[in-house]
Design a protein around this nucleic acid. Sequence first.
DNA 1: ATACTATTTAGATACTTGTCTAAATATCTA
DNA 2: TAGATATTTAGACAAGTATCTAAATAGTAT
Lengths: 93, 93
Amino acid sequence: MTLNNTFTALSDPTRRKILQLLKKKDLPVNEIAVNFEITLPSLSHHLTTLKNANLVSTQRMGQQIIYSLNLSVFEEIAEELYNFFNKNKAKKL
Amino acid sequence: MTLNNTFTALSDPTRRKILQLLKKKDLPVNEIAVNFEITLPSLSHHLTTLKNANLVSTQRMGQQIIYSLNLSVFEEIAEELYNFFNKNKAKKL
DNA sequence: ATACTATTTAGATACTTGTCTAAATATCTA
DNA sequence: TAGATATTTAGACAAGTATCTAAATAGTAT
């Protein structure tokens, strides 16, 4: 299920920080890395999680792989979440 | 961090299904339970997670404990999420 | 081709989470 | 008070996740 991947991806502080960085501009892995104290393989693992959740996309530029936010997907998620909770107002028991 | 709890709570399908049920109406634990195949202690554990994330609240009615959605919190979250991704539009590298 | 830079994959380990059974707590009713 | 119902807590275990080091892959440059 897609929502699973999305929320799981968002439930980790490291990954949310990555997203915040990418919000400002697209970045290659090594520039993302300077913001964290974890190893490159660990970072790579988080990036894969974000990619599987379709929250980021990649593009090779020579030796580097540039990560960027999938903004359209985020809009969908926010909307989905909004609808999830605001359609069919809750009735008291 | 509060966002952690929120996304962690939302990242499990059982918990999302609980929220969907509570969206229709407030329910005691035993009525929530009939919708799942897990034991009561497991369900209770999920309910605690949702409560810690401030997504639901409880109220005792005799022997039963009635769970209900915290709708206002959901609106906040949806808004927060929307802002998280739509303020400061991403710039290309 | 060889060396160098950038990133990912593989395999191991520690931590976290979801589930269970058994026991405890709280309320109601006879 | 004793018994029944509703829910949570405690403790154990299996499965999932984050992290690491070492090795592999991909591209660039000499």
